[in-house]
Design a protein around this nucleic acid. Structure first.
Length: 700
DNA sequence: ATTAGGG
DNA sequence: CCCTAAT
């Protein structure tokens, strides 16, 4: 499978109302960085894998020292940071939304197509359309192109299956695809192979099949039915293209409203109460520590597909990055999540996508230029253009490709995935390397975060993860109009219970002001429809959810398209407030990677500790500058902040058991002195406060 | 520039 | 150690 990553970077053409940047940009940058660093833990393996391989791995450029360092920290997730990052993503997205899309394309393989790596320009209208979008400068990263072949092995029942697509047997996809290698810039030739263990299933929105373990509570995993057959579905990237037809993909239009943390988002506060309420311990409810940072994606649905009254905006709280932070040690993370689901979940809670389906939009991109008939072209163009779409889609064609009789394998290649939104804001004087890193981080954040893979077949979404490819109709001999994969908001975040809370929170922001985000004529085209989201899923069980979704019903491509267009308009509105918030958020922060290197770590030696203790004993805590002058005046690298921090850690160290201490052991004697001194000075400090309550206390 | 704390 | 907020 090849990923052609198209990144538009919004510098040049994209005109955004300028808004003062947030002052805290620096910090955010840091956040982002960390996020980017994380690899590996994705909600869904497939996605995760892809993202990880494509984005994370191999990305470490030599120059990104900072990044590397960042990894050290990576293990530690900072909720706040994550949130912020996510928020940022959201902001960016909304920001960008409707204006142009950035795409991540996995190009479809055409069997005949000789060219492995296609330049964007080569892409069919749709893609081109996107690319050509005004204002968006598209950068195509040369991602390695890989072909993805899905191969379905015939199981013993194959004959039966052939006859009847709907075999009773349900297979689950137990395996996750593994991409052997995929790096953005390098190793273009590598192939990615996805193997689904026996009983491969089509992963649907539920995404349960895929690493459900990571999000245990979110989805109820159905007990998978295991088939003993040896059949495997293998998706491998191959280099040769398969003929594919494009099918129209429908994309939902989602409006994202971003709310800055600084403005106490309603979400934040409300959420807390909820938590207390004991509402379902869903992720969402979790109050986020600093909700402030949380952003929301607000989806304003004026009308659903059916033309229902607008459901109101849907709020999606997206925390794309949440995972990233944890990635570093997936093991731990997972464990922790299980043990303390909420804890980690917190991050997500607000990030849940309330949109009913969770699948926001799918963009269809037809691989072959020819298939316009079905409106593919239009559909695709719309999709692609629709910067507004919340989610990226991929299109690929299934090729009927090489099927040998008796060989029930389905081979297809994902031509591309679009990354919903990436907004890059980077100084002109930034280096290319930093730009790359920045983009990479953004992409990683998005992919690593709450995305899941959606499968669209013949114009309709395949929601049942338990279905086999055959049951779904995807067989080696299927007509292959279209098999599409889409990147969708991760359902996890959408836990029902939470949804309302978040939503309510969001509401304020959702002010229905028409925002002309997508001024370009193409806007209409861009807008996607909100698929399947007609009903409010809140409270709906997942399964129900799936069933209820009308989308599941096979619908003609074009029908879907129509819907899309209709809905699209409604979605557009964004609150001015939101806009500002967004604009205010610093999108990118190249700084850290380049200039601001983290200082090297310099553990305090025992002698230093001794000096510190002695100084503090005499001067007390709170006079770090004096301490510095007194005992570390020569140690240029020791700032008073360092000394303060060291004291802090010393106190902590002294309080924990020796077994828990790490690093060069500090003599117990010193630690005892630390505690003594700390206690003494703390007492002194307390006394001081008692003496001069000052006006401050009067208030009470 | 410092101080205090959270991360 | 970093990052911020508050002094």
């Amino acid at each position: 499978m090849v990923l052609q990553k198209r990144l538009d970077y919004g510098f040049n053409g994209y005109q955004v109302p300028h808004i003062p940047r947030a002052t805290r940009s620096v910090r955010r940058r840091g956040i982002i960085k960390r996020k980017a660093d994380g690899n590996g833990t994705c909600p869904f393996d497939l996605l995760a894998t892809v993202a990880g391989k494509l984005l994370g791995e191999g990305e470490s450029s030599p120059d990104s020292t900072g990044s590397v360092k960042g990894k050290e920290k990576g293990a530690i997730v900072k909720d706040e940071k994550v949130k912020e990052a996510e928020d940022k993503s959201l902001k960016e997205k909304s920001y960008t939304e409707g204006c142009y899309e950035r795409g991540f394309f996995i190009s479809e393989l055409v069997s005949q197509a000789p060219v492995v790596n296609r330049s964007l320009s080569e892409l069919p209208h749709v893609q081109n359309d996107t690319i050509s979008r005004p204002a968006s400068a598209s950068m195509s990263s040369d991602c390695s192109e890989k072909l993805l072949f899905a191969k379905q092995f015939v199981n013993g029942e194959s004959s039966e299956e052939h006859e009847n697509f709907c075999s009773k047997t349900e297979r689950e996809a137990s395996g996750c695809g593994v991409f052997s290698s995929c790096t953005l810039d390098t190793e273009n030739d590598k192939q990615m192979k996805i193997e689904l263990s026996n009983k491969a299933k089509v992963l649907t929105d539920k995404g349960t099949a895929i690493s459900s373990s990571k999000f245990p509570d979110v989805w109820d995993k159905k007990p998978s039915t295991l088939v003993t057959s040896d059949e495997n579905v293998k998706l491998s990237l191959s280099t040769y293209p398969a003929p594919s037809r494009s099918f129209p993909v429908i994309r939902n239009d989602v409006k994202l409203a971003y709310k800055d943390d600084d403005e106490n988002s309603g979400c934040t506060q409300p959420s807390t109460p909820n938590k207390a309420s004991g509402a379902a311990p869903r992720v969402r409810d979790r109050p986020i520590k600093k909700l402030l940072a949380s952003k929301y994606w607000v989806e304003n649905l004026k009308s659903d597909d059916e033309g229902h009254a607008n459901s109101g905006g849907k709020t999606m709280h997206v925390y794309y990055n949440r995972n990233i932070g944890y990635k570093r040690d997936g093991y731990k993370q997972q464990r922790s999540q299980r043990d303390f689901p909420f804890k980690k979940r917190k991050l997500f809670k607000c990030g849940s996508f309330s949109n009913s389906d969770g699948e926001m939009s799918t963009d269809g991109i037809s691989s072959s230029p020819k298939n316009d008939l079905h409106g593919n072209a239009s559909g695709s163009s719309k999709a692609s253009s629709g910067g507004c779409a919340a989610v990226g889609t991929s299109v690929f064609s299934g090729g009927r490709p090489f099927l040998r009789p008796g060989d029930s394998h389905v081979k297809f290649r994902i031509k591309s995935f679009k990354v919903p939104e990436l907004f890059v804001d980077i100084p002109e004087n930034a280096t290319i390397g930093s730009l790359k890193r920045t983009v990479m981080e953004a992409v990683t954040a998005i992919l690593g975060g709450g995305l899941r893979i959606g499968v669209v077949f013949q114009g309709k979404k395949v929601r049942d993860d338990n279905k086999t490819l055959l049951q779904t109709g995807i067989s080696h001999d299927y007509k292959l109009d279209a098999l599409g994969f889409s990147l969708e908001p991760n359902p996890v975040q959408t836990s029902q219970p939470l949804g309302q809370d978040c939503r309510s929170c969001v509401l304020p922001y959702e002010t229905p002001q028409p925002l002309t985000r997508c001024p370009s004529p193409s806007t209409v085209i861009h807008t996607g429809i909100h698929q399947g989201r007609s009903d409010d899923h809140t409270g709906t069980s997942l399964s129900t959810f799936l069933e209820s979704d009308h989308e599941s019903a096979p619908s003609p491509h074009y029908a879907a398209l129509e819907k899309i267009s209709a809905n699209s308009r409604a979605l557009v509105p964004l609150t001015a407030v939101n806009a500002e918030a967004l604009s205010a958020v610093p999108l990118r922060k190249p700084k850290r990677s380049e200039a601001t290197q983290r200082r090297i770590r310099r553990p305090f030696s025992v002698s230093e500790v001794e000096a510190l203790v002695q100084a503090v004993e005499k001067l007390g805590t709170g006079r770090w500058r004096d301490v510095k002058l007194r005992s570390f005046d020569n140690a240029k690298h020791r700032t008073y902040v360092d000394l303060k921090d060291k004291w802090k850690t010393l106190v902590h160290t002294a309080r924990i058991s020796p077994q828990q201490r790490r690093g060069e052991p500090v003599p117990q004697e010193l630690l005892d002195r630390v505690l003594t001194a700390h206690a003494y000075w703390s007492q002194q400090q307390a006394k001081q406060q008692m003496k001069q309550p000052s006006e401050t206390y009067l208030l009470l």
